[in-house]
């Protein structure tokens, strides 16, 4: 077995319970020294795994997401690929989260208290989010009304869309 941090032969094997999840790490002599893994009682494995440096080390979840070849997804906004994600364990831009949403559950497993945000929400976010969803729905209905030549409904929908579009929420998002 090789070291999770470099490719030398691993001689130190660690297992720790991190938030109910078994995490294992294999290290070679010199990496173990470097990470200060001499007294397993006093350091946190989670800390080491999350500390940023080259971590291909979470054995419970062998790769961050499906191995290369199977997953050829790429972020249309920034070009970040599944391979990049596996390599650096970080994301490229805000849109990557949309692209890799199906994999998020796996990525987040055992990492946090939960997998859904329950904290702060930007002021006005809910209001604007609701408006956008409503607009989307109305536009869809308008389209089908036009297609079925139901012009009376279409006119009504058009007015409603206009009204919503000009509606100023109490707080605007930048």
């Amino acid at each position: 077995m090789n070291c999770d941090f470099c490719d030398q032969k691993a001689t130190v094997f660690l297992t720790q319970l991190v938030e109910g999840q078994m995490k294992k790490v294999c290290l070679c002599e010199s990496c173990a020294q470097e990470k200060g893994v001499t007294d397993p009682t006093g350091f946190s494995l989670a800390d080491m795994l999350m500390s940023g440096t080259p971590t291909s080390a979470i054995v419970g979840t062998p790769a961050f997401i499906k191995p290369r070849g199977n997953n050829v997804k790429k972020c249309p906004n920034c070009g970040f690929s599944a391979d990049d994600l596996n390599r650096v364990r970080r994301f490229g831009c805000s849109e990557c989260f949309e692209v890799f949403r199906p994999e998020m559950e796996l990525i987040l497993r055992g990492m946090h208290q939960g997998i859904h945000h329950v904290g702060k929400v930007p002021k006005g976010y809910e209001e604007i989010h609701a408006r956008d969803e409503k607009l989307e729905e109305l536009r869809g209905r308008l389209e089908s009304a036009i297609q079925t030549e139901n012009y009376e409904d279409a006119a009504q929908l058009r007015d409603e869309i206009r009204r919503l579009e000009t509606f100023q929420p109490s707080v605007t998002l930048p």
Partner: peptide, 9 residues
């Protein structure tokens, strides 16, 4: 703290 998701600030 380590966890940032699933709990309020």
């Amino acid at each position: 703290n380590q966890s940032t998701l699933g709990e309020a600030e």
